[in-house]
Amino acid sequence: MKQFIVELINDRFMIAAVLLFGLGFMNLLLQKNLIKKIIGFNVMDSSIFLFLASQGYINGRIAPIITNGVFDAEVYINPIPSGLVLTGIVVSVSVTAFFLALTVRLYGIYKTVDFDEIMLLINKEAE
């Protein structure tokens, strides 16, 4: 039991990332407002970044910037997740902008950002 709690505290970043992912996914599924759905999507993105960054960290090591001529890999943290997070942030920004643009167009046509109302209006148009 004691070991379990120690592991729980040690893995707090990954657990927080998973919980945030669930929260964001819940938001994405259950919110009716399209803007709030997009916010949920962004929370999911952030949880992935937290997970990747926590995978790269190593206790007691410093950021991989070689300033005093130490080339030993034992001194620095893992630089690869940092680069992956960078890619992720760019893709997240781009996708969010595209979603928001689509929402603006939908609002222009249906004058609402409520997903259910938009679906009802589309069904009415189809009939």
Partner: peptide
């Protein structure tokens, strides 16, 4: 969460 429990520990070299 189960996967996280089975993952390697955080911050281990």
């Amino acid at each position: 969460l189960y996967t996280v429990y089975k993952l390697p520990l955080f911050g281990v070299a």
